[in-house]
Design a protein around this nucleic acid. Structure first.
Lengths: 199, 199
DNA sequence: GTCTATATCTCGATAGAC
DNA sequence: GTCTATCGAGATATAGAC
């Protein structure tokens, strides 16, 4: 490697570290209570240096959203190795339940971010947060459609909505058991669905 | 009325105006993005005067939470005029759907507040937000119990969770129709429940 | 590309006149 | 009780040396 390539690699490593740190810290503390210093510290990058990679704080929020979106794609991609769409959805619910302690402590990463960004008058970033949720919604709808169920869009809405709701309640009441209880109901519900039948 | 009583009344009127303004503005803009000046302006009270009624910003947040809690009590109280608990729950869902435009714009007042407060390391106010949600949860559970349904706590969790989920999605996607679609499913679900049967 | 120092701004909170 | 003026903390963002 030449020196210039070396520098480039190190540079993008720092950018990557900042992005990962932003995704994590913004989830834990929220956008408004997170300072650039917080993110820089976790990423082990000097504060002033942050501006070389991200011109504004909003760009860091954007990067965190991309990170969540990429993570979601990678996850649904893995689920598609399962042959039966119903098994994919059940595996999705099981993963949510496994993450119950994180949900009880900080809520759903994308959901809490979207809720916070929607409080802004400036409506640029909140649309991007909504797009990540829409991405999950569309993927789930595809699974219901493959199962030959009617109104797959409404079924997807119910499932994703249930996830956001149980995450918010688990968080607000600081009770991971809420994820377990609602998760069990969702698994039973998924098992009960039959083609040409609604919920 | 003596002058001193006059002053007292005017004073508590101002306190009341500040509380109402806090409840509204904190819902619309969130806690972190709302300044004391914002609340004072809406309440038509000079900024510096706020501190005569509320020693800190957190006390204003607390007052807003009490306002939401009182509003909830008053609302469930009115619902209890209906003889059938099932009708009470259906009226509750119908009210949520009627509020769809507010939900799409700002989310559920208590839910978004709880989510934001839970991002704090300091865990004093978030518990109070959770308590308001718990209050709704308990009331709904009572209705299911009156209906003689098994696991009324799980049923209440499903209903309130569905409400929080659909509010968050409607808000994130800026789409009030989401409230209508999920609301319709909840009404059908409530109709389908029979004693000694689970969801 | 990296980092320090600092400018600039906003906001919560206080002091003190009236 | 009411209100103005302002302090001081803390944050984003920038200037500029290296």
């Amino acid at each position: 490697m030449t020196n210039s390539v070396n520098r480039l690699v190190r540079a993008s490593q720092k950018r990557q570290r900042l992005t990962a740190a932003a995704a994590r810290v913004l989830h834990e503390q929220g956008v408004e209570r997170t300072t650039l210093a917080d993110i820089a510290r976790v990423a082990d990058v000097p504060v002033g240096n942050v501006y070389y990679y991200f011109k504004t704080k909003d760009e860091l929020v954007r990067a965190a959203l991309s990170e969540h979106s990429a993570h979601l794609d990678e996850f649904t991609g893995r689920l598609e190795r399962l042959a039966d769409p119903r098994d994919r959805l059940k595996a999705l619910v099981e993963t949510w339940v496994e993450q119950r302690d994180v949900a009880a402590r900080h809520g759903c990463p994308t959901g809490t971010l979207a809720a916070e960004l929607d409080k802004r008058a400036d409506g640029t970033l909140d649309a991007e947060a909504g797009a990540v949720i829409r991405r999950l919604l569309d993927w789930v709808e595809g699974q219901f459609r493959e199962l030959g169920l009617s109104r797959p869009d409404d079924l997807a809405l119910s499932l994703v909505s249930a996830y956001q709701g149980m995450s918010l309640l688990a968080n607000a009441l600081r009770d991971p058991d809420i994820m377990t209880r609602e998760g069990a109901r969702l698994l039973r519900w998924l098992d009960s669905l039959q083609a040409a039948e609604e919920m």
